[in-house]
Design a protein around this nucleic acid. Structure first.
Lengths: 321, 321
DNA sequence: CTGAAAGCGCTTACAG
DNA sequence: CTGAAAGCGCTTACAG
């Protein structure tokens, strides 16, 4: 466990009998060419000594840390977990590593984390706020930033999101197509476009709404309120898989069967939605694709823009199909 | 979105009319003291200019990157997700940021990720392998490493884990205490100490075993095999929450009720186990505590050691209590 | 209490 | 094709 002193470029150069520059040339295959024999000697030295270039030094010299920052509200949400994996993969493919931070859904902490990441010279920031953050943090950090999971255009910021209004409409219409006369809504603490879509699909008929946190516990409590009292709706559109998982648990406790007594359509379509009992019919967000676009945009993005990815209804069993 | 040139220490020094050294002294509150008036001027300059010390430069100079690496098999497992959050919090409290990488459970990729992290000058590595990795990677990286979720002592390596044999015994005995005559086992691809504990608790009576991947799909398929054919056990001990979630789904499909037809005790006790229907009785791994110990050990650890954290049976409803 | 200077390990123009 | 050297932005002995 005693740490051996780090092998530096100079060590390799000495061992191979060349200058440091040449070592750098072979490590990066450029920008100058090196004769095959010299290159072989250098590669040998690298292998024998176990040389690993010092990323801090390279970052300092080039001004490029090859680091991306990812800020998520929390990890124990399979949607964010999936996103973290996908972003990590895309970043890695472009030679970037990922520094992750979780904000716990707290705006002040989130801002703090972003500033911290900025200090670490990340070259891009991917941030997912439950509520779209003040785009000012973007300016404050002075680093290319893309906001993920944002449902509407935010002038001056690069945002990626799905057409959640459309998704909500699709989900609610699917429920309606089963002939259910009522469709409740379980949604986050603040109004968002999913609520709007739900209203439109219902042609503005009045139906029960419960607001709660975007997690299992929130969905659980909201469902207890919505279905524990008389006048419960025949079906419900839930604005995230996590809330839907909590909702399912509440319905089970209340002795209500899904979909026979209450039908559900959820929003997100993460792994969790596949393995509930019954599996959830869900409006799926294309996480992999969004991750790819986000990484490309944060690294190459020419300026603020709005990207809307299409959403797709994945029919499983909770809707009664 | 145009990137302003970075503000450096020299800029602050010039603005405040002091030397760079003084700026460093006030930023770090040491190691030399600075007069209150000068300090005030410097703090002003920092605020006005929006100075963020360049972490790469500091890392190069001090030889300390203040970075920790975390390698996980995947993120869409709430146990790992919980762990990532907990480790992030502990690291942050000690001024370290976290670079995360997921191995996808592939040993070669895992090794690769570790080497990559080593090149990034992380000062410690926390790695969780589904199967305990070759401790050689530790030597190869030349960086203090602690392996998490390891169930037995590995000489020469620092490992943290629970007494999983004891946990399995507790879980199975709890099932037995309900009077169930049979307790099946759903476990990972390779034998581990949980299987041993299960056998011991059953006093080596022969019972059904199904092996499968440590994920939802694995547990789903294993349960279909175990409960879809005659001679199914009255209860089952499942070696992870993810597998238990899949198992619950399979039982639902088979029309078997939990706990009336089949009782379940799971292993992990992550958030997911709280919100299934019914909630899972589980042998809980103390994730927060393990994260704390891991971070402390990787940063201060004097050498290889074995840490065993106690496990606790959390009784909920899937066992029939 | 403060400044001038060295040096961490790289990369890359500049000479040769 | 290769080497000597400058410089990225810090921190920290060393002088004063």
């Amino acid at each position: 466990m005693s740490r051996p002193p780090r092998v530096t470029q100079a060590d390799v150069a000495r061992y191979a009998g060349v200058s440091g520059a040449v070592v750098s040339y072979v490590v990066h295959a450029g920008p100058r060419s090196v004769s095959p024999e010299t290159a072989a000697k250098v590669r040998d030295a690298i292998r024998v000594l176990g040389y690993q270039p010092n990323a801090s030094a390279a970052a300092l010299r080039t001004g490029s840390s090859k680091l991306l920052g990812l800020v998520l509200p929390e990890f124990d949400n399979s949607l964010w977990a999936d996103l973290a994996v996908a972003v990590g993969r895309c970043a890695s493919a472009r030679g970037f590593a990922l520094i992750t931070a979780s904000s716990g859904g707290d705006a002040a902490l989130e801002r703090d984390q972003i500033l911290r990441l900025a200090g670490r010279q990340v070259e891009g920031l991917l941030v997912t706020s439950v509520e779209m953050t003040d785009p000012d943090v973007h300016g404050a950090a002075g680093i290319p930033t893309v906001f993920l999971n944002v449902f509407s255009d935010v002038p001056g910021a690069t945002t990626i999101g799905v057409d959640a209004r459309r998704g909500a409409i699709d989900g609610v219409e699917h429920l309606l197509s089963h002939g259910y006369d009522s469709v409740g809504l379980i949604i986050g603490p603040d109004a968002d476009v999913r609520e709007q879509g739900w209203r439109e699909a219902l042609e503005f008929r009045s139906m029960p709404v419960e607001r709660c946190a975007f997690d299992r516990q929130g969905g659980y409590e909201a469902a207890l309120r919505m279905f524990g009292s008389p006048g419960r709706p025949r079906s419900v559109f839930v604005s995230s898989d996590m809330q839907a998982v909590g909702c399912l648990r509440a319905l089970w406790e209340l002795g209500l069967r899904v979909p026979q007594d209450v039908a559900i359509v959820s929003f997100d379509g993460s792994v969790d939605s596949q393995f509930t009992a019954p599996p959830l019919t869900a409006v799926r967000q294309p996480i992999e694709r969004m991750a790819q676009v986000a990484v490309d945009l944060v690294l190459d993005g020419p300026g603020p823009r709005r990207v809307v990815e299409p959403v797709r209804l994945v029919v499983r069993e909770s809707c009664g199909c």
